[in-house]
Structures are given as C-alpha cells and as structure tokens.
C-alpha cells in the first residue's frame, strides 16, 4: 500500500513542477492523469518495492552528500592529472566484488562508480563488476571497498 501512495505523491509533484498553472481545469486534468496512471500500474502489478523504491529514501538522503563529496574529490584528482603537462595517467581494468544483496543495489553501486569521474563500470555481473580506472589511485580507492560499504549502508543492511 505504501508504494502506490508514494507514486501518487511523486506523479502529482512532477505534474505541478512541469505545468506551474494553478487553475481548476488544469489541476483536475492532472488529478485525472495521476489516478489513471496509478490504477493502470496497480492493475499491471508493476507498482512494487522495485519500481518505487521508497524504502531507500532515508538511506539516500544520507548517501547523496557523501557521493557529492566523493565526486568533487575525484573530479579534482582527475582534473589535476588532465591539466599537468606530462599527463601522468595509468589506465587499468580491475575486477571488484559488488558485495551487494540484490540487483537494485548492484545497479546503484555501478551507477555510483560511473558517476564518479576517474572510474567507469564496464560490465556488471552477478557478484563482480569490471571497472576501468583512469589512474591507479582511483582504482586503489575503489578496491578499498569504502563505496561498497556506503551503498550497503544505504540499503539498510548492517
């Protein structure tokens, strides 16, 4: 029951954000669209924990600032490497364990890896991710498993 309610709130917020009009006619159109969408989704049985991951929200609020800090840090790292005249890069391909419990968390882990400059996930397997790293430092910092631990904390597994 939690998932459809969250979907209603998110869809209504999106409608108001994109339309920006407060007249009765347009708002009633929005209500109709939201209700029809949610009813179709519920009848199709696609409104569940995976499509509306509301249980991740508290962890996400804690995780996002950490990720932004990580992005700034590694951006500065890559920027220094790019701007220095000798171009001191050492591209490597490494395999790391995902250490996650289900597909959603593996995907958010791989997405975080790619979002951080200096590392790209090349192939996401069941329990290993193939990662291309620009420098050996960024590869080492990924191997230390700090990010995997933070993503695990986000999903609420101790």
């Amino acid at each position: 029951m939690k998932a459809p309610l969250t979907l209603v709130i998110v869809l209504a917020g999106t409608w108001i954000l994109l339309s920006g009009h407060w007249s009765f006619f347009l708002l009633s159109l929005g209500v109709a669209s939201v209700v029809i969408t949610v009813l179709c989704g519920v009848r199709l049985k696609i409104v569940d924990k995976e499509s509306v991951p509301v249980h991740l929200l508290p962890g996400l609020i804690r995780y996002t600032p950490w990720l932004i800090g990580q992005i700034i840090q590694s951006s500065l790292h890559v920027a220094r490497r790019v701007l220095s005249p000798k171009l001191p890069i050492s591209p490597t391909i490494i395999h790391i364990d995902t250490q996650q419990t289900d597909a959603l968390n593996s995907v958010s882990y791989a997405n975080s890896i790619t979002l951080t400059p200096g590392t790209i996930s090349l192939d996401v397997g069941k329990d290993q991710i193939e990662v291309h790293a620009l420098t050996s430092e960024s590869a080492e910092s990924l191997k230390s498993g700090l990010m995997a631990k933070q993503v695990r904390k986000m999903e609420g597994v101790r």
């Binding site: 700034i72 790019v82 591209p91 400059p117 790209i120």
Partner: peptide, 26 residues
C-alpha cells in the same frame, strides 16, 4: 573547460570518457 581539455588531450577512447564525465557531473 577541463573536461574539454581532457576530451582533446587524453590518448584513447576509454580515458576520454573519464575526461568527458567531469563536464557531465561537476
């Protein structure tokens, strides 16, 4: 600007993606 520099200077496609991702994120 740094991302554009990386796009031009880095030696190979996979490393250039790193350069372009600076522009995309930060």
């Amino acid at each position: 600007l740094i991302g554009a520099t990386g796009l031009l200077r880095l030696p190979d496609i996979l490393t250039r993606i790193h350069g372009a991702s600076i522009t995309d994120t930060l």
